[in-house]
């Protein structure tokens, strides 16, 4: 039985990932406790997105293991990655490019997985979907198709679609990177609201201001390892590691 008081929500042990001869992650260790909002920052190609995709079970790993709520989730053995499908159901993900199903209405986008793979009765799924859409101010769009929505609306629908399945951990992979600047805020607002409800999240973002606002913990990833790990004020404000400091200075210099 999982005990949220004493056990980590997710615990990553020695995660290695390589595409052929190209090493992306070389030994990531991380314990994430429930209620934590971890923002992963770092240079492009530093393995941030790969880390999230691994957590979602979208990528195989070359070495290491992940436990989720005290249960074995992902393990690599003899070059094969085993993913526990039941544990995976507790994790939800939102991607950079809105991955809504273009042939389904917004309502059906939300209902599909709940009805078809979780066995939720249609009426119940519909109610739940409408509630979620109402919470995000999108109930008027229930019958619309993704192509009719703005980028910000699509991304909010994508968040609602993931929330339909009651995830215990949400992964956000650069969800505002593809958005026009004026649409970023509406998506970040939704995420901040989820943060207030203490939904555990792991977020990859390039937006340092947003990172500071939402994170309870910031991890700086570079060269496939965790270089620095700590509260946002420290990692973003007064980093210890010289590599982190250089990165932070450069980013804030460009944005400021």
């Amino acid at each position: 039985m999982y005990d949220a008081m004493t056990q980590p929500l997710a615990s990553l042990r020695n995660i290695h990932k390589a595409y052929g001869s190209l090493t992306v992650l070389s030994g990531i260790n991380l314990d994430m406790s429930p209620g934590e909002r971890v923002v992963v920052i770092g240079p492009s190609g530093g393995g941030k997105s790969t880390l999230l995709r691994i957590m979602m079970g979208l990528e195989e790993i070359t070495e290491g293991s992940i436990e989720f709520e005290g249960q074995p989730y992902i393990t690599a053995r003899n070059g094969k990655t085993r993913i526990d499908a039941d544990v995976r159901k507790k994790v939800g993900m939102v991607f950079q490019h809105y991955t809504l199903f273009p042939h389904l209405s917004i309502l059906n986008n939300l209902m599909l997985a709940a009805v078809k793979t979780r066995g939720m009765p249609r009426a119940e799924a519909r109610d739940k979907a409408m509630q979620l859409l109402a919470r995000l101010g999108l109930e008027a769009k229930a019958g619309a198709y993704p192509s009719h929505l703005s980028g910000g609306q699509k991304q909010r629908v994508a968040i609602a679609r993931a929330l339909m399945l009651d995830p215990r951990l949400m992964l956000f992979d650069e969800v505002t990177s593809a958005l026009d600047p004026e649409l970023v805020a509406e998506v970040e607002q939704v995420m901040l609201e989820l943060a207030e409800q203490r939904l555990p999240m792991m977020i990859v973002t390039h937006d340092m201001w947003f990172a500071r606002n939402i994170a309870s913990r910031v991890i700086f990833c570079a060269g496939g390892v965790v270089v620095e790990d700590g509260p946002p004020e420290q990692v973003l404000g007064d980093p210890v590691n010289p590599r982190t400091r250089e990165f932070i200075q450069r980013v804030f210099h460009i944005h400021g």
Binding site: F95, T99, H103, A113
Partner: peptide
């Protein structure tokens, strides 16, 4: 590829993925 990713992330079974996500789009 994103459609496959989304289907995986939502935990859709291969059957649901094929019949409800891939096939309708392919046919359309």
């Amino acid at each position: 590829r994103e459609q496959y990713d989304a289907a995986h992330a939502l935990g859709l079974t291969p059957w649901v993925r094929t019949v409800h996500v891939l096939l309708p789009q392919a046919v359309l």
